[in-house]
């Protein structure tokens, strides 16, 4: 694994193993795009099948959704700053931005769970209509990814504190960074094609 160390590259790209891991993670993200595409497809087909239940305009709390969007967008930015600090070898800055990223992510998750609880109290559950089934599956899959990302990042941060910034920890942080940005990319499409579309149509 220590073969082919190229110190002219950023830390996370220095070993062949790391470059392969990063490439492999990009391929995984390609599969994730397709996973979310199937859920978007189901939603796009069923989104007007209200079955006598609430419609988009009845339940969507657009103000809360805007705040969620800003939290996740800002967390994607701070995650980018974390990687930027990692490349300047600033471990303190790296950890600080990662913690801020996770706090913003946790804030997003907290608001999303509250939003779901609110919907369920309004009588809009997964069982109510095809619209709400596909809505909760799409949103829930994204929320589950955010939850997993927070847990994963905490473990990587603990490893970073214990072992310091090495080619291996740098690669792990870079990969969780890619994952986190990807979750924001998915959210852009949820915001546009679920929430904004629902408020228009």
């Amino acid at each position: 694994m220590s073969a082919n160390v190229n110190t002219s590259l950023p830390l996370e790209y220095q070993t062949h193993q790391s470059r392969m891991n990063i490439l492999g993670f990009w391929i995984f993200l390609g599969a994730e795009i397709v996973l979310f595409a199937t859920l978007f497809a189901v939603y796009a087909v069923l989104y007007q099948n209200y079955a006598g239940g609430p419609t988009h305009q009845d339940i969507i709390m657009i103000k809360e959704v805007m705040i969620q969007t800003l939290l996740l967008l800002t967390s994607s930015f701070t995650c980018g700053l974390a990687i930027y600090e990692m490349r300047r070898n600033n471990v303190k800055g790296l950890i600080s931005w990662l913690v801020i990223t996770l706090l913003l992510g946790a804030g997003f998750l907290f608001m999303e769970i509250n939003e779901f609880i609110h919907y369920i109290h309004e009588g809009a559950t997964m069982q109510t209509s095809a619209f709400l089934s596909s809505f909760f599956v799409l949103l829930g899959t994204h929320g589950a990814h955010v939850t997993l990302g927070i847990g994963w990042a905490i473990i990587v941060i603990i490893q970073l504190i214990k072992r310091g910034l090495t080619p291996v920890t740098a690669r792990k942080i870079f990969i969780i960074g890619l994952y986190w940005h990807f979750l924001d990319v998915v959210w852009i499409f949820i915001f546009t094609f679920v929430y904004l579309k629902g408020m228009v149509g």
Partner: peptide
């Protein structure tokens, strides 16, 4: 943010993500 094009695998990344997007569009 994700520096998709950097590194020796930058081209591979673009082709891979472009194909993922293509399949996504076909599915939806």
């Amino acid at each position: 943010f994700m520096h998709m094009t950097e590194g020796e695998d930058g081209k591979t990344n673009i082709i891979n993500i472009a194909y993922g997007v293509f399949v996504a569009v076909v599915v939806v």
